[in-house]
Amino acid sequence: MRPNIRYAPVDRRSHPPMIHPPYRSTTHRGPTRPLVPIPQTLTELTGPIYGHDAIGELDHDLTRNAAKNGEPIGERILVAGRVLDEHGRPVPHTLIEIWQANAAGRYIHRRDQHHAPIDPNFHGAGRCLTDEDGWYRFITIRPGPYPWQNHANAWRPPHIHFSLFGPAFVTRLITQMYFPGDPLLDHDPIFQAVPAFARERLIARFDLDLTQPEFATGYRFDIILRGPAETPMEDGR
């Protein structure tokens, strides 16, 4: 924990509502009563800490961490960015977990029945720690779109799921990263559940500087977590 810090509130204007009827399962799963405000105590200001011992050598490289007899099929990409708080300060040494479909739009999950091929060399899960400047970097395969049962002819836009802890239990964030220029975004009720002004925060941007010649195209996705409620004092100021 960071002693003596209280976190700014969840900015509910930037987040989706609990119930968004076009995303059907929210109607019987989203809570209907107002959240009960409580103060942040030691319970909320602490949180799980993971170090390098929690991370395997290949955990950040989804093109290699499940390879059995070759490389996964698909478009190799680099996904990188910084985890920052609302003041733009890096969130160092924090765990990021990701998971995604393969290039054909198939998850490894037992309940995924989409009749697209499983890739024997791709598992689709990874994790890494941010460095001291909040940077993270994954190597993966661009995921494909896949159909779901929400409404007639429903397709999820290609996306990568992100799970982050941040410095405290209250800074937890679970989100999805999307790709620029994707026509499916206009039709996706999960993405569209986010207020219009904040949707672009979920879209990675193509980044030629991240792109590695003769290897992989690069996408930049920065993640902003709840920050301290007051601008912290810089040391020595």
């Binding site: 987040h15 920052l84 708080d85 609302e86 733009g88 799970s163 993405f191 925060r201 979920l202």
Partner: peptide, 11 residues
Amino acid sequence: RLGQTPSQTVG
């Protein structure tokens, strides 16, 4: 302030 990254379902 930078805007918080919106939440999405875990799926």
